[in-house]
Simulated scan of single mutants.
Amino acid sequence: MQSLCVPPLHFPATALRRRRILTTAVRPVRAELREDNNPLIQSAIDSAFHRLRETNRKEPLFIDPYAACFLPPYSKNESSINEQQQHYCLATKFIDDKLLHIAKRIDGLKQVVMFTDGMDTRPYRLNWPTSTMIFDVSPENVFEIASNKLQGVGARIPKSCLFFHIPVEPGNIEQCLRSKGFSGNRPSIWAMQGLPLESQSSFEAILSAISSLAMHECYLIGELPTNITLQSDLAKWMDNLFMSNGFKAKIVSYEEIATSLGVVLHSPINDDAVLFIAQQLRFSDDQMETWRQEFQRVEEDGDEQGFEEL
């Protein structure tokens, strides 16, 4: 893909908000909750386990003081880092830093929309600027379990911010976001990590909704699972798909992130996901409607003035 005109690819240190971190030993196998047969819950727990292991490292890329609350206690705690965890944590660090970097450049009200697995702790652990509206789009049953556990350990959204959950199941994400106060006439930042996607068409539908809602020059950052498509040339397919929805996209190399952070990467290739950053080149539907109404008003004013002159 061609290079994307975005802020320089540097990685400001994510605010590490030291809180009392649960240090319960855990095992990297699927946790045995009541919902242990639910693959969505198990996948979210696996990601939480990656974040906990990263948090407990001597020099972590980020700190998640709440990851342990999703995991049951076990006596076994492996310290080795596998490739899947390393890629996931590098992507998490990249998305964390980009979200905060872009949000802090926006004056006034900020809108952050995150497509997650339901156990994402960014609304609680990141140092969000004031006047930030945070929307979490995720599976409802996973989110409800996570919300109860987070409340149990005292997790709180910053007082100067607002938080809304949007269930991904109804499908009409655009309408649901609008019903919670989202406006396409205000700046927004979009992120995607962990959201269970059933198929290529499900991602295309989400991207189309984002394209309709995101203002001109807004950013979408995230990881796209590779198992949703059988495209032989993934980079070309992504470039065409994003461009058809008004986005200029750039695939971000895990190796590039690791190098910038001084991390030795076990494998530069991630067969499970592609990390990307994209910028909106179009205007949102709300922007277009606002301008249409303004243009109509100007025309009507002109007609009235012409009639008076006659």
Results as ranks from 00 to 15, higher is better:
Ile41His: 15
Lys98Leu: 13
His50Ser: 06
Asp303Thr: 01
Asn56Arg: 15
Ser253Met: 05
Ser47Glu: 06
Leu261Gly: 01
Asp303Lys: 07
Ala205Lys: 13
Ile251Asn: 07
Thr55Tyr: 00
Phe203Leu: 06
Glu54Gln: 04
Asp97Leu: 02
Lys58Pro: 01
Phe242Glu: 08
Pro129Gln: 10
Ile106Asn: 11
Leu197Pro: 11
Ser80Gly: 02
Val29Leu: 10
Ala155Met: 14
Gln85Trp: 04
Phe283Trp: 15
Lys236Ser: 09
Gln231Val: 04
Gly262Trp: 04
Leu197Ala: 09
Gln200Phe: 01
Phe163Glu: 05
Pro167Asn: 09
Lys159Ile: 12
Gly108Arg: 12
Asp97Ser: 11
His10Cys: 04
Trp291Gly: 01
Asn127Ala: 15
Glu144Trp: 15
Gln175Ala: 14
Phe283Ser: 10
Gln85Tyr: 03
Ser188Glu: 04
Phe242Pro: 08
Gly154Asp: 12
Lys159Val: 15
Ser80Leu: 12
Glu255Asp: 06
Glu294Cys: 00
Ala146Asn: 10
Leu265Pro: 01
Cys218Ser: 13
Lys236Ala: 12
Ile21Leu: 06
Ile269Lys: 09
Ala209Gln: 10
Glu83Pro: 00
Pro60Ile: 06
Ala214Thr: 07
Val298Gly: 04
Gln231His: 12
Ile45Met: 00
Arg156Thr: 12
Lys149Arg: 15
Tyr219Pro: 02
Gln111Cys: 06
Glu198Leu: 12
Pro60His: 05
Asn185Tyr: 07
Gln86His: 01
Leu275Asn: 14
Ala191Asp: 02
Ile173Gly: 05
Gly184Trp: 06
Asn141Gln: 15
Glu78Lys: 00
Leu230Trp: 12
Leu177Gly: 02
Pro8Ala: 14
Thr259Glu: 14
Gln193His: 01
Gln193Pro: 14
Ala44Asp: 05
Leu9Ile: 09
Val298Asn: 04
Tyr254His: 14
Val274Ile: 10
Tyr124Thr: 09
Ile95Thr: 08
Ile173Glu: 04
Asp272Cys: 00
Gln2Asn: 13
Gly152Trp: 11
Met288Pro: 00
Cys69Met: 05
